[in-house]
Design a protein around this nucleic acid. Structure first.
Lengths: 139, 139
DNA sequence: TATTGTTATACTCTATAACTATA
DNA sequence: TATAGTTATAGAGTATAACAATA
């Protein structure tokens, strides 16, 4: 059974940790929204514009603008879909992959330091919680 | 020992859950940034403009704009500081407090629904992880 | 007719620089 | 001279509405 304060505690801890992590910005040339798109392209491969918009839960015009910025910076590439000429395939470039790699390692360094000091039991609990949180986020 | 992807997974899950929780607002007329300011005023009492800007880690002009929107909506009130006439004290109104209360209960209701479907083991792990995340955020 | 991507338009959030009033 | 708040200006992210090209 869920106790009343449990949801509040999880909500506050989530917001506070997200905020704390956000203060560890590494690369000023790429914004958070742009980096999130690069990360999605890096992890899941090429997307159409609408697939990217749906994944990030933003409108197609909004995603189009972000993708335009990334294209101008040479971090993504558009290419026509040979089967359906309405579609545009969007994929990350070598430069884009490089940005992801460097940024992730910088962003996660702070977190990794703290994870390394946890007990084995805490590690297991945190890994399990991470899966649950990701599942919640998808619902 | 911390495996390479663990920090990334925790970071992503935290960002995604925070983002998901943020979609639950009581009122679409209040944006995320505005609601965060209302929450700070509700929890910590009146602030000067620069104190609010510092707490939210944004520039004074940026905070000024957000505060203007909240004032026009009747959710906060400005009043002159009697001791130092350069200062403006910013406090939440009854309407503002109402928005905070309704939004918080809505967010926790959504979270509680999902918590209630977890196994006992998942509950324990999540509670333990919540404590760890809060501790990380304070460091 | 429906779908995909895009453009037009408008609003918020963000920043830096410069200005006003006060200490 | 220094500080608190504000205004001016500009760039990015967000949305809805409307449009062209294609299925």
């Amino acid at each position: 059974m869920t106790t009343p304060g449990q949801a509040s505690q999880l909500r506050l801890a989530t917001f506070r940790l997200a905020r704390r992590l956000r203060t560890h910005k590494s690369d000023d040339s790429v914004t958070d929204a742009q980096f999130t798109v690069l990360g999605a392209l890096s992890r899941f491969g090429p997307h159409t514009l609408s697939a990217l918009a749906e994944r990030e839960r933003v409108s197609a015009p909004s995603m189009n603008r972000t993708v335009n910025c990334l294209e101008e910076a040479g971090l993504i590439m558009r290419s026509e879909d040979s089967a359906d000429r309405r579609r545009t395939n969007i994929e990350i470039t070598a430069s884009g992959t490089d940005v992801v790699t460097r940024t992730v390692s910088k962003r996660d360094a702070w977190l990794t330091e703290r994870l390394n000091e946890l007990s084995h039991e805490d590690h297991v609990a945190l890994a399990r919680a991470t899966e649950i949180m990701a599942r919640f986020a998808d619902q």
